Amino acid sequence: MQVLRQIGGVLCSVALATVSASSARAWTPGDDFDDRHCRTERDQGGDTVDVCRAIYGRGKVYLGVYWEDGSSVVGPCSTSDPEPIEYKGMSQRDAQSWVDSYCR
């Protein structure tokens, strides 16, 4: 009986850890970009960058820009869209500049 309780406790801990890990990660449009949505380019500094564009939801165009160092910009192409642009490794101004240049 003691062994069954220990096994049950371990299984419960594993299940809780799995649920916690998956719920901590928020969905972003960039999670669904396929290879066919993307092309590899060089930015002005000569760094390799993957630029992705795709349509999601009700015809919303999303942009995703990903650098090898982990920097990224993901968000809607429409300036009137209330959904914010998500960015990492750069300023908000630089992120907005990428969206402006690739979405227009």
Rank of each mutant, 00 (worst) to 15 (best):
residue 37 H to R: 02
residue 93 R to H: 12
residue 97 S to C: 00
residue 48 T to G: 04
residue 102 Y to K: 05
residue 38 C to A: 03
residue 83 E to L: 12
residue 17 A to L: 14
residue 1 M to R: 11
residue 58 R to P: 06
residue 79 T to Q: 14
residue 98 W to H: 05
residue 40 T to D: 03
residue 88 K to L: 10
residue 37 H to Y: 05
residue 61 V to K: 14
residue 22 S to C: 02
residue 84 P to E: 11
residue 22 S to K: 06
residue 38 C to F: 02
residue 94 D to F: 11
residue 76 P to Q: 11
residue 23 S to R: 13
residue 51 V to W: 06
residue 63 L to Y: 03
residue 70 G to E: 07
residue 13 S to T: 13
residue 52 C to R: 05
residue 54 A to T: 06
residue 60 K to L: 00
residue 5 R to I: 07
residue 35 D to T: 08
residue 14 V to L: 15
residue 44 Q to K: 11
residue 45 G to A: 15
residue 102 Y to I: 01
residue 41 E to Y: 04
residue 95 A to W: 07
residue 57 G to F: 10
residue 81 D to Q: 07
residue 56 Y to P: 00
residue 31 D to Q: 06
residue 64 G to H: 14
residue 16 L to H: 06
residue 64 G to C: 12
residue 76 P to N: 13
residue 89 G to I: 05
residue 9 G to H: 06
residue 29 P to W: 07
residue 88 K to T: 08
residue 44 Q to A: 15
residue 92 Q to H: 04
residue 28 T to P: 00
residue 3 V to E: 08
residue 77 C to F: 06
residue 84 P to R: 12
residue 44 Q to N: 11
residue 96 Q to W: 00
residue 31 D to S: 11
residue 44 Q to S: 15
residue 56 Y to D: 06
residue 9 G to T: 13
residue 70 G to Y: 04
residue 30 G to V: 09
residue 36 R to I: 10
residue 7 I to L: 10
residue 85 I to S: 01
residue 23 S to P: 00
residue 44 Q to L: 10
residue 93 R to Y: 08
residue 11 L to F: 13
residue 104 R to V: 03
residue 13 S to L: 15
residue 102 Y to C: 01
residue 104 R to M: 10
residue 85 I to G: 02
residue 30 G to Q: 06
residue 15 A to W: 08
residue 27 W to N: 03
residue 101 S to F: 09
residue 18 T to G: 08
residue 96 Q to L: 14
residue 99 V to R: 13
residue 79 T to K: 14
residue 78 S to N: 15
residue 20 S to I: 11
residue 62 Y to N: 13
residue 71 S to E: 08
residue 40 T to V: 06
residue 74 V to E: 09
residue 75 G to T: 03
residue 104 R to H: 14
residue 22 S to P: 00
residue 97 S to M: 03
residue 4 L to T: 01
residue 35 D to L: 09
residue 39 R to V: 08
residue 14 V to M: 10
residue 68 E to A: 15
residue 35 D to G: 11
residue 97 S to K: 02
residue 64 G to M: 12
residue 40 T to G: 01
residue 93 R to L: 07
residue 3 V to F: 08
residue 32 D to S: 13
residue 73 V to H: 10
residue 41 E to K: 04
residue 17 A to N: 02
residue 77 C to D: 04
residue 25 R to W: 10
residue 75 G to N: 02
residue 42 R to S: 08
residue 43 D to F: 03
residue 88 K to I: 02
residue 11 L to N: 08
residue 2 Q to C: 01
residue 88 K to D: 09
residue 86 E to N: 07
residue 91 S to I: 02
residue 40 T to C: 00
residue 28 T to K: 01
residue 89 G to T: 07
residue 62 Y to S: 04
residue 53 R to H: 04
residue 27 W to M: 09
residue 7 I to R: 07
residue 85 I to N: 02
residue 50 D to G: 01
residue 18 T to E: 03
residue 32 D to C: 00
residue 47 D to W: 01
residue 71 S to D: 11
residue 74 V to S: 04
residue 69 D to K: 03
residue 29 P to H: 05
